[in-house]
C-alpha cells in the first residue's frame, strides 16, 4: 500500500451543476438559495456543500455552505449571510439570479450530523447564520420524530435578524417537546420578555436539559461564539464528547 491509498477508498464527491430555482430574502442581510441538484443521493442534517465560482479569466473561489433543508426534500436550501467586503457571499446575495447555474459538490462531513435514529435529547445552540445546519436538524426532526426532546437557543442581534423566525415560532407552538429560546444581543422590542444580551451560563443551564438526560449538543456560529458556548458547557459539567461544534469563520465580536 502506498502512503496515499485510503484504507477505505470512497468515490470522489464530484462537482455538479445546480439550477437556482428560487431566492428567498430571509432578513436584510440573509437570503436562502433553493437549488435543484442534477443528482442527489441524500444527505444528513448538518452536512454542507462546497460551492465554486469561476470568473471569465478562469479565477475560481470556493466556499462551504451548510444545507438548511432536511433530507426528506428533493431541493437543497442554502442560507447565506452577507459578509461585507466578502468575495463570495455578496455575489450570492446580489448577482445570482433564478435560473442561473451554480457549481457545487456535496454532501460533505460526517461529524456535525444528527438524524432521528440517533435519538435525543438534542440541544442546539446557534449564533447568527449558525442556525443553518441546525435548521436542517429541526426540519428533519419535525418530519420524522417530533417527540424527541429538543431545544434551540438562538442568538441574534435583533428580532429582525432572526432567520426562519415564522417557521421556528410555528414549529415551537405546535410542539411541546421543542423549546425555543431567542437571545437578542443588540436590540429588543420594548415589551421583550425573552433573554437580553449574549447567551450566558444561566440561560444555557436552564434550557440544555440535565446531565442525567445526557443531551447531545450542536453548537454552530462564528468562531468566538462557538468557543465561548462550548467552554461554558464544559464548565457546566457536560461531557466534551457530547458537544459537537461547527465554526463558520472569524468572529465579528
Amino acid at each position: 500500500m502506498t502512503a496515499t491509498d485510503a484504507p477505505l477508498q470512497q468515490p470522489k464527491i464530484e462537482w455538479q451543476i445546480g439550477r437556482v430555482l428560487a431566492i428567498v430574502a430571509e432578513t436584510s442581510r440573509v437570503k436562502s438559495i433553493i437549488l435543484q441538484p442534477s443528482r442527489w443521493s441524500g444527505h444528513w442534517p448538518g452536512q454542507h456543500v462546497d460551492i465554486r465560482l469561476t470568473a471569465e479569466d478562469g479565477y475560481q473561489a470556493e466556499r462551504s455552505y451548510s444545507i438548511a433543508s432536511p433530507p426528506e426534500e428533493q431541493l437543497l436550501a442554502l442560507t447565506v449571510e452577507r459578509v461585507e467586503d466578502g468575495e463570495v457571499s455578496p455575489y450570492l446575495l446580489d448577482e445570482l439570479r433564478v435560473g442561473d447555474a451554480l457549481e457545487f459538490r456535496g454532501p460533505i462531513g460526517r461529524h456535525f450530523i444528527w438524524s432521528q435514529t440517533r435519538g435525543g435529547p438534542i440541544c442546539l445552540v446557534a449564533g447568527g447564520t449558525g442556525i443553518t445546519p441546525l435548521m436542517a436538524m429541526l426540519r428533519h426532526r419535525k418530519g420524522s420524530r417530533p417527540n424527541i426532546p429538543a431545544s434551540l437557543i438562538y442568538s441574534a442581534r435583533s428580532l429582525a435578524d432572526v432567520v426562519y423566525r415564522d417557521e421556528l415560532d410555528t414549529m415551537a407552538r405546535r410542539d411541546l417537546n421543542l423549546r425555543l429560546v431567542y437571545a437578542l444581543t443588540r436590540e429588543h422590542p420594548s415589551d421583550w420578555n425573552g433573554h437580553r444580551g449574549r447567551v450566558n451560563e444561566v440561560l444555557l443551564e436552564e434550557h440544555s436539559f440535565t446531565r442525567e438526560q445526557n443531551p447531545t449538543f450542536f453548537v454552530c456560529g462564528p468562531t468566538g461564539f462557538v468557543e465561548s458556548i462550548s467552554s461554558m458547557l464544559v464548565t457546566l459539567g457536560f461531557d466534551p464528547f457530547t458537544i459537537k461544534t461547527e465554526r463558520f469563520g472569524p468572529s465579528r465580536g
Binding site: 462537482w15 451543476i17 465554486r52 469561476t54 479565477y59 466578502g86 455575489y91 448577482e95 442561473d100 451554480l102
Partner: peptide, 15 residues
C-alpha cells in the same frame, strides 16, 4: 466535468 461554467458577473475581489 471538463470546464466549469463561468459564473456570470463574478470577478476576483482579491489582490
Amino acid at each position: 466535468m471538463d470546464r466549469p461554467p463561468v459564473s456570470r458577473g463574478f470577478k476576483s475581489r482579491r489582490q
